[in-house]
Amino acid sequence: MSDITRDEVAHLADLARIDLSEAEIDKLAPQLAVILEAIDSIADVATDDIPPTSHAVPLTNVFREDVVRPGLTAEQALAGAPATEDQRFLVPRILGED
């Protein structure tokens, strides 16, 4: 389970949209292998009857009233944008459509 290959790292980088260089992949793969080996110790610790904890504090049903709250102005929203046009975020051409 702990083996992680160069190809896998490249695939994960692709999923995570990081343009890793060959050198970075070479460096990362063995580091991740070491970390994963250390982590593998938990594989047999918990049996299936142990419920998972996703939230440290057991709250439920935290809801908001359906009432409009003031948000940001378009100027504030766009202030940090790398590029804008016509009060919109300008982004490079998008490939494909979902």
Binding site: I4, L15, R17, D19, L28, Q31, L32, V91, I94, L95
Partner: peptide, 30 residues
């Protein structure tokens, strides 16, 4: 030339994140 949004994302995330951040993103993605 004329990179896509996708290519700009990848290049930016490679240039903008340091090694430890990349390590953890890859680990978490895995």
């Amino acid at each position: 030339e004329a990179p896509s949004a996708e290519e700009v994302m990848r290049a930016t995330r490679d240039a903008g994140f340091g090694d430890e951040v990349k390590r953890r993103i890859i680990l978490g993605t895995y």
